[in-house]
Design a protein around this nucleic acid. Structure first.
Length: 217
DNA sequence: TGCCAGGCCGGGT
DNA sequence: ACCCGGCATGGC
């Protein structure tokens, strides 16, 4: 049996060869990445894009400006992304956190806190769980935290890497322990998993035969 | 039409 | 420590 590190790198190479580089996260600024991370919770990206477009029309993709908008108004703007009242409250929580700890100076955060400390603090925001936190850390703050999502779990499970009952932290540890700790690698790896998942594993059922990862089964 | 999408929280066992 | 209902829109 192949070492896990070799298997993970080979899966990566296979996906990259088939799909090409992703250029993620699809946003123009760290703050927009953070907003997108919250809005895409259990929601298709196409619905999130509509909400981001409305926010952009109202010039709210800057933290100081979004901060000034009432929560109910914000909720209406992001309606298309679903769970919109909930997510408006979550965005307000996120804004309050970053206002309080760095006045929206995201670069300053990395000097002030260790990576693990920062992760714990972000996880303390109500409405931000492990996936959203790691998305913020990796794609907005450029720290090497591997993002685990539903696709990551399904793919890893069906390729015999992990049992059903594996937790988020355990699966994240699998990648952390078996890959070089590079932001660029973690970035592209997660992006490829999502794109593979969308394209080839559309339903929860099984991987289709055209999936580039099929040979790893 | 019903199921699904790049989760998370709070209450109940 | 799990398990589950709630949260909501838009696409296929």
């Amino acid at each position: 049996m192949m070492a896990k590190a070799d298997l993970l790198l080979e899966m990566y190479d296979t996906m990259l060869a088939r799909l090409g580089a992703s250029g993620w996260w699809p946003s123009k600024s760290p703050f927009e990445t953070i907003v997108g991370a919250v809005l895409t919770q259990n929601t298709s990206w196409s619905n999130v894009e509509k909400a981001l477009a409305v926010l952009r029309q109202h010039d709210l993709l800057e933290p100081e400006k979004m901060e000034a908008v009432p929560e109910e108004t914000l909720a209406e703007y992001i309606r298309s992304s679903g769970y919109y009242r909930l997510k408006a409250a979550r965005l307000k929580n996120v804004l309050r956190f970053f206002r309080d700890c760095c006045d929206f100076d995201f670069a300053f955060l990395k000097d002030r806190f260790s990576p693990q400390d920062l992760r714990e603090r972000i996880l303390g925001i109500k409405g931000v769980g492990p996936e959203t936190a790691d998305t913020i850390l990796l794609y907005a703050l450029e720290l090497p935290f591997f993002v685990v999502d539903a696709y990551t779990f399904r793919i890893a499970n069906r390729h015999g890497l992990i049992p059903e009952e594996t937790s988020y932290d355990e699966l994240q540890l699998l990648f952390a322990e078996n890959l070089p700790q590079q932001v660029s690698l973690f970035n592209e790896y997660h992006a490829l998993f999502v794109r593979i998942g969308k394209t080839f594993c559309l339903k929860k059922k099984s991987l289709c035969e055209n999936c580039p990862l099929h040979d790893f089964l």
